[in-house]
């Protein structure tokens, strides 16, 4: 996906240090990151790598001991000069992992609450339209499904017309179909509003589909920032290509057998020859491994 509407050379420069305390001990968060405006970045890494903390620091909800955050010409944070903009004064939209919808307000009221003082109300209707929530706009959040809540949270984060959209694992709690739908909504909003978007995700397919860059984090530091193809192809080459799964379906075609295997949540089709397919049946646990570039399939146990 290319840089769109808001074409600008403005950069977001982040350089922050913070000591994080967690159940597993203390960790030093030390992040240097520059983001070009209009990009969609995915933060990728193990849980506890500091991804959520980074989003909270950008939003101003967590305060680093040392550091600078500059967005275009605006300084949001500079500990050497004692500048630390309040979250209220930072131009961000934030979608929380637990959605954080206000239970006492309807969908429409949730969006209206986010309106700024001199903002026209028309944006509320427009956003409700974009995320297809017109029919649900008078419902309370606790009557909505996870996917619907997530759409409300996304729409609400966009009401203020932020420059930066932060999404903390927005799709992790949703099923595959809802995920695909929401990926589409996020991409649409990202392009339509010329946003700079930072997203946390663990799903490789999702990351490859959505992001311009992947920021790989570990132990509180950024390991690298590369286009997704570079990061994931390298990883695959280094790691051994092998997955375990369960045979869902086998269909014979001429001389070969096509075996459909459920790996994680994905269905994978593997071509097997007669020899390999012999003794295999639906329900078997199998190992799929690559011999050179050609995946082969083995029965386990």
């Amino acid at each position: 996906m290319a840089v769109t509407s808001k074409k600008s050379a403005e950069m977001i420069e982040i350089d922050v240090q913070k000591e994080l305390r967690s159940a597993s001990g203390n960790m030093q968060l030390d992040i240097q990151l520059s983001v070009e405006q209009g990009d969609l970045l995915t933060l990728y890494g193990k849980s506890g790598a500091g991804k959520t903390s980074l989003l909270m620091i950008i939003a101003g909800l967590m305060h680093p001991e040392k550091g600078k955050i500059r967005v275009g010409d605006e300084v949001w944070l500079d500990t050497t000069k004692g500048i630390n903009k309040r979250p209220q004064d930072r131009d961000v939209g934030l979608v929380f992992q637990d959605y954080a919808l206000f239970p006492n307000m309807t969908v429409r009221e949730n969006l209206k609450y986010a309106l700024g003082r001199n903002q026209s109300k028309s944006i509320v209707d427009e956003l409700i339209e974009i995320v297809d929530l017109s029919e649900l706009s008078d419902r309370r959040p606790n009557t909505l499904s996870g996917g619907q809540k997530q759409r409300v949270a996304l729409a609400r984060a966009l009401v203020n017309a932020p420059d930066i959209l932060l999404l903390d694992e927005p799709l992790s709690a949703l099923d595959q179909e809802m995920r695909t739908k929401l990926q589409h909504y996020i991409l649409e909003a990202h392009e339509k509003f010329g946003l700079t978007t930072l997203l946390i995700s663990h799903d490789v397919t999702e990351i490859i589909k959505m992001s311009d860059y992947v920021v790989q984090m570990d132990q509180g530091v950024v390991l690298r920032k590369e286009p997704p193809a570079t990061i994931f192809t390298n990883e695959r080459l280094n790691a051994k290509f092998q997955f375990t799964g369960e045979v869902m379906k086998m269909s014979s075609q001429d001389f070969i057998v096509i075996v459909t295997v459920l790996v994680g949540r994905e269905l994978v089709k593997v071509v097997a020859n007669d020899q390999e397919a012999q003794g295999l049946q639906v329900g078997d646990r199998v190992l799929i491994a690559s011999k050179a570039f050609n995946p082969v399939i083995h029965k386990i146990g």
Binding site: V92, F96, Y113
Partner: peptide, 15 residues
């Protein structure tokens, strides 16, 4: 209450 309710409101610019 989830602390995120408060945070969400602050990020929306509310006092």
């Amino acid at each position: 209450l989830s602390p995120d309710l408060k945070r969400a409101s602050y990020v929306m610019g509310k006092s």
